[in-house]
Structure formats: C-alpha cells, structure tokens
C-alpha cells in the first residue's frame, strides 16, 4: 500500500470518533431525561458521521476490497489506534460527560489545525466537523458546570469522574511516528503543540465548575500504539459481533 503513513494517521483520527461514538450509542434510551438522550445521540451521530468520512478516505487509499466497514469492524484489537480515554466505560452520567468533554476540547483544537492540512480531504472533513464539535464542547462543558456546581452529590460524582479520567488526558498529545512525518509535510497536526492551550481551557472550565484539578503527574498511554485497557475487548466483541459471526456478507 502506498501512503501507509497517511492511512495509519487517518485511523488515528477516525478511531477516536468511532469508539467515542460507540460508547455514547450504548446510552441511547438510558439517560437521565428524554432531552439528554436525544442530545447525546446527536453527538454520537456526529461522531459516526465523521468516522465514515475518514474511513471512506482510508478505504480509497488502501484499495483492494477495503470499505469503511471492513476498516471499522475487521481489525484486531491491537490495530485500533484510539486513545485510552474514549474507550472508558459509562460508569455513570458524570463519567460519560467528563470523558466526552475531555475529548471534545482536544478534538476541537485538533480540527482547528487540521482544517489547514495540505491534504485536501482531511482539510474538508475537519472544516465540516469543526461546527459539530464546537457544539459538543459547549454542550458537555455546560453539563460539567451543572454537575460540578450542582449538588454536593453531583459535585462528588463529577470530581470522581475527573480524577478517574485525568490519567488518560496526557496521551492525547503523544505524537506518533506517522504523525511526526506527516506533520513535517504539513498534512498532520503536531498534537504536542495543543497541550498547553488544552490544559488552560480545561482548567478554566473545571475551576468555574468548582472542581479541583487533579495533581497526579502519572499518566497512562498506549492506545495510539494499539495497547488498550481491558474494556476495549468487550467493546469490540459487541461492535464486531455481526461481521465476525457472519463473515463476507452484505447488510
């Protein structure tokens, strides 16, 4: 395959959307109100839409018989490049929103840079996605404030979620080999440059939400290299079930 770097880089972008969308999709029908169900499903649908655009592009590059679905459903666990953050389970509504918010802020910063990519397809996907993700940041950010500065109980739950997920934030700014090469060509975003702004933005909002910024300097990483948490296997078992049980069929 030509353009192996680009292919891998697209997966790095797309897998975050795919897995984050999958996690939100689990909740449809089980949220705290009909209104929040509808809103979270919208975010999930945006993310799956972005996933499809990326994978269709990746399938073109890969050629052979690759399709958006073969790329989405028929890889092995070690081949998924999403960050550990987005695969974390929906322990409660605070976890779900904290996970989504911590990802959204990064996602928007990334897209704001990616829209200037020399790769026109990536640039076009980024431009379209920015509008969607701007809304995601606003929606989840508002909810972080509500739960952080709501009741004692909600504050404790949101703090616990932030504490639990904080360890996965640093990985967002790890630069993979592919991304490094492509960044030099003006195609990929050097995500390490987003780190300072990210933590400033997140700190400001969490502070407004009366939450404490975790002090721990110990971070987890591995997702971008395909080494996932134990949750990932179950997520994939669910997601890939049909394609694995009934191979080579059209749906």
């Amino acid at each position: 395959m030509k353009k192996t770097n680009l292919y891998n880089y697209i997966l790095e972008l797309a897998d975050n959307c795919l897995i984050a969308g999958q996690r939100l999709g689990e909740l449809c029908g089980h949220g705290p109100s009909l209104e929040t169900d509808i809103a979270c499903t919208n975010i999930s649908l945006d993310l799956f839409g972005q996933t499809r655009s990326y994978f269709q592009y990746a399938a073109d590059i890969k050629g052979e018989d690759a399709t958006e679905d073969s790329i989405a459903f028929l890889r092995f666990e070690r081949e998924y490049k999403n960050v550990l953050l987005v695969e974390q389970p929906n322990r409660d509504f605070a976890y779900t929103l904290a996970r989504q918010y911590l990802f959204d802020v990064y996602h928007l910063l990334l897209l704001e840079k990616l829209q200037f990519s020399q790769d026109l397809t990536l640039s076009a996907i980024a431009k379209k996605s920015i509008k969607e993700v701007s809304y995601h940041v606003r929606f989840t950010g508002d909810w972080i404030k509500r739960l952080g500065d709501g009741t004692e109980e909600s504050h404790a739950k949101m703090q616990e979620a932030i504490d639990g997920l904080w360890t996965y934030t640093n990985e967002l700014f790890e630069v993979t080999e592919e991304a490094k090469t492509l960044a030099e060509e003006g195609i990929a975003v050097d995500v390490s440059t987003l780190k300072k702004t990210y933590y400033e933005k997140v700190t400001a909002l969490l502070t407004e939400a009366t939450l404490t910024i975790p002090e721990s300097k110990y971070f987890q990483k591995g997702g971008k290299a395909g080494i996932h948490t134990e949750h990932m296997g179950y997520l994939l078992a669910d997601m890939q079930y049909m394609q694995r049980a009934y191979p080579n069929m059209k749906w």
């Binding site: 509808i38 919208n42 929606f139 509500r146």
Partner: peptide
C-alpha cells in the same frame, strides 16, 4: 420540552 434553565432549554430545543 423540559429543561433546568434557559441555556439548557435552547440546547435541548436545538436537538429536539
């Protein structure tokens, strides 16, 4: 629709 405050009502209205 139901919402706790005006901001949420706007967001929910957009989605609903």
């Amino acid at each position: 629709l139901h919402a706790a405050d005006a901001d949420m009502a706007l967001e929910n209205a957009r989605d609903v």
